[in-house]
């Protein structure tokens, strides 16, 4: 199954796929131009991949805010 990945997620894709592979070791993942191919036809697995990409972007983009809040809490 081919899953289209919007350009806005490109900077986070490698880390997200690494994480997805560890969460779904039974699924093979291939990075293609502008999309990702997985060896699974289950829509739930495709959704899981998209969500993993979303989560990685959210995590990275909010890291500085989270860090500053933790630092302000812990002194």
């Amino acid at each position: 199954m081919l899953i289209e990945i919007a350009p806005v997620f490109a900077p986070y894709l490698d880390e997200a796929l690494l994480r997805f592979s560890y969460l779904h070791p039974e699924v093979e993942v291939f990075k293609r131009d502008g999309c990702v191919e997985i060896t699974n036809e289950d829509p739930a697995v495709a959704a899981s991949l998209r969500h993993t990409v979303y989560r990685q972007k959210i995590y990275k983009e909010t890291f500085a805010l989270r860090q500053s809040l933790i630092e302000s809490l812990t002194g």
Partner: peptide, 11 residues
């Protein structure tokens, strides 16, 4: 505007 990290899960 700062949006704090939001983590999500399908219900």
């Amino acid at each position: 505007m700062n949006v704090v990290p939001l983590k999500f899960r399908p219900m």
